[in-house]
Design a protein around this nucleic acid. Sequence first.
DNA 1: CCATTTCATCGCTATATTGCGATTCAATAC
DNA 2: GTATTGAATCGCAATATAGCGATGAAATGG
Lengths: 102, 102
Amino acid sequence: MGTTKKELFSLEDNQVAAIAKAVGHPARVAILKQLARLDACVCGDLVDVLPLSQSTVSQHLKALKEAHLILGEVEGKNVCYCINKEVWEKAQSLLTDFFSRR
Amino acid sequence: MGTTKKELFSLEDNQVAAIAKAVGHPARVAILKQLARLDACVCGDLVDVLPLSQSTVSQHLKALKEAHLILGEVEGKNVCYCINKEVWEKAQSLLTDFFSRR
DNA sequence: CCATTTCATCGCTATATTGCGATTCAATAC
DNA sequence: GTATTGAATCGCAATATAGCGATGAAATGG
């Protein structure tokens, strides 16, 4: 318990849920918006923009990375994040389809 | 801590996050799909369709109701759930806009 | 009245999430 | 080499979530 019984649901339902879950926090929404806006990647400028500590922002970035919605590339001392275009488009179509029902 | 600092984010970011959070579980995805498919409302047939106990399904329905994505109407002994069309469309446009970035 | 059915809620356990400060590690700067 | 900077991770506390069985409350059936 406390654990989602993923095995019991369809792949698609799990995919939709996983994406939605990753987006389900205002900080992560804000991060994704920033990354979309800047098109090119950014790094820890995100920390400056967000009203959260560095460690907390790092956690959210990790969550988004685990959902494959973003990519992080090391550039010397910095890490450059950007939207994972492929997965983003997949997510877009999954969610669009989902909400187009009815 | 353990609590999202919603105050620190924009209304829109919070709205997007709240909807995504509600959708962020495969059981709730499955419920919403069913309700969309049956167009007309259903009741505890949902429990039969889902691989979860009645109490757990009830919890998920509560979560969806709190996100205003669904409506529940008492009909004698039964409760009839259906998608909240207005909010659903709002959610659709919010999420579509969100994913249309970039 | 009592029994049954339908659903919500309580009470509990297990696990996950959010947040932060402190620490660590790698890369640069000196 | 040491110092500094950027970012991930650790460790912790507070809270939230997922799941279930049991109990409750309202409506129907007798």
